[in-house]
Design a binder for these strands. Structure first.
Lengths: 342, 342
DNA sequence: TTTAGCACTCTCAAGGTTAGAGTGCTAACC
DNA sequence: GGTTAGCACTCTAACCTTGAGAGTGCTAAA
């Protein structure tokens, strides 16, 4: 459905004014603010038409207009143009991310933090999916007389550690044996195939050595599992509750959904590759029916990986949010790619 | 100020009813609910007296009574008696904590989670203070051609890792050299003395070897710093916003204070050793003037260490919260002690 | 096609009224 | 002296009414 140029201009002006003020926009206030060169009556006619077509609604007869979900959708798809973050802004984002750039997780946590800080909405970030990664290397560090730490390094650069305990006193020689035996067994194995049966088969292969193994095998399984699983970093959840135009119970629903890492991760995994905006009921989860999720994926070595997303009210400055997300996404992708290459 | 037995009984009944219902308690509803064997007029006389003495207030003339800060204080100090968590409850708490019992941090995160879940309030937990701890051992694991992970193990069982990068290609021999040189230098050193000057002096000692060192030295400094610093685990912050009797801006203030880890850690560090309840303005921070902080310290090998705390409204079930906190505290202390001994 | 004018509609805030809950006081009672 | 029934009193919350103001849609003229 194509809209005439002037209708677009009016819709755009209404949405932008509403985003700024949060008040329904009337025909008079619109021309005074947006500098349209027609009378309020003309604007009224156009507004009535936009309302009939479903782009706007009136909270009540004598109120101005508010964009509908469809109105926002049209604005985002056809009218809005996103200007990238300024050079200075980009430098700033990069410098913040760089402060904690040791691991993908810490980069993503920083990313989530800065997105939330800049947009003033809740923000989440997922680590890259490790389904297709493989074990690159396993190392051991002794941490106590009966405890040691397994360090699992995967092909996609994720490093997970897990401390395990043994009944016997651990010696460097034992760790050496573990190192050889376990790297032989696990190197090159896909993370997704390291499950309980695999562990048991592996244990069987070790013969009597396997008596010493239960702790370390479980540690490797646990670390591999965590390296494989998408984990969700988040920031600014408290900001959810200051979304004025959302009811209390709706806010509670959103908060509860976001705190359920499993469901959240699944929803985020299903988001598209490109930057996308899911408005209100376009979201796959009913909990988010009154919220907008703006999301994008960062790419590692040009492969789309995890998600960066903002969760906020329908009434948000989409241009700003999208440009921030895309800028952070670009920086994050570059940084993680660099981290892994080396 | 001692109160007569009947006054205590009435105060207690009012507080308990109010905690349950959240409504101001009137004289009639009080006798019907609490089974006091006197008339409403008598209760009214007593209530008037308790109001004069500052234990209760009336929101307005024709409303029932609400406990004041002083009322809660008297109740907690003189009336309430805390019954410990049931054996079954304790088993449950222990089993949940045990699921993630590899490191003090993960235990404390679980502790915070379960406290928040059981009480339905926000909860925080601090890691033990590492001011007096010393470096026990430093190990290295190669993670890439130019990167390696330093593992710093401290005398109080905290293990911190930090990945660092070198300009040159890392070999096992180089890590061996690092291992020897750095354990010689750092073993037994107090975490609190590992600062920039110390690092520089150390670097000077290494002579020309120090050219290879900047990355690894910074990693050790960073890991030691983090091992020393109290870090704050938290859970259930979103629950703060469902505290009905607190204004919106007050909730915002609390949320912002809790998100400021530095200030929060400092406040928690100054809490007493025993279980304590800071009601409203008794708190050291004005942001918490409308909240109650219930806190206790867990002990590692009988030494009081970090803090477990609940942050909620004045109107909370103190008995329940205190018993949960004490139970979790006991379990956490035992588990961390065990973790370190081994 | 655009616009001025106008009657109309609806909300919001202010003021008034009423029902109900809870009180404090008094006088009688044990 | 402590306790209680009775009663006038106070205050809130909910409801209604009213008027001002904002914004509309329609009509007729430009």
């Amino acid at each position: 459905m194509e809209l005439a140029a002037r209708k677009q201009k009016i819709l755009s002006a209404i949405i932008e004014t509403y985003i700024k003020t949060g008040e329904p926009v009337g025909s008079k206030s619109l021309i005074s603010e947006s500098g349209l060169d027609v009378s309020s009556a003309t604007v009224r006619n156009e507004m009535a038409d936009l309302t009939n077509r479903g782009f706007l609604i009136q909270p009540h007869t004598s109120a101005g207009r508010i964009p509908t979900q469809q109105g926002y959708r049209y604005y985002i798809d056809n009218i809005m143009n996103v200007t990238p973050v300024s050079q200075r802004g980009k430098e700033y984002i990069r410098s913040v991310l760089y402060e904690n750039a040791d691991s993908p997780e810490s980069i993503l946590q920083s990313a989530s933090d800065i997105i939330s800080q800049l947009t003033n909405f809740a923000s989440v970030a997922t680590t890259p999916n490790g389904e297709d990664s493989r074990i690159h290397k396993i190392s051991f560090v002794q941490t106590g007389s009966h405890t040691a730490m397994a360090v699992v390094i995967t092909s996609n650069g994720i490093i997970k550690t897990k401390i395990f305990r043994c009944e016997f006193i651990i010696t460097p020689e034992i760790l050496d044996v573990f190192d050889k035996a376990l790297n032989d067994t696990f190197a090159g194995i896909k993370l997704s195939s390291i499950n309980q049966p695999f562990i048991q088969t592996a244990a069987a292969h070790f013969g009597e050595l396997s008596l010493f193994m239960p702790g370390v095998l479980m540690a490797i399984k646990d670390a591999s599992q965590r390296a494989k699983d998408v984990s969700v970093c988040h920031s600014g959840y408290t900001k959810l509750l200051f979304m004025a135009d959302v009811s209390f119970s709706a806010a509670r629903g959103v908060a509860e959904f976001l705190n359920n890492e499993h469901d959240l991760a699944r929803m985020l995994e299903n988001l598209p590759i490109d930057t996308s905006v899911a408005i209100g009921r376009e979201n796959s989860r009913i909990e988010l029916a009154a919220s907008t999720v703006v999301s994008t994926r960062y790419s590692i070595d040009s492969n789309p990986s995890g998600v960066l997303a903002v969760i906020g009210p329908l009434r948000m400055n989409y241009c700003r949010v999208i440009s921030i997300l895309e800028c952070v996404s670009e920086c994050v992708g570059a940084m993680i790619s660099e981290l892994i290459e080396i």
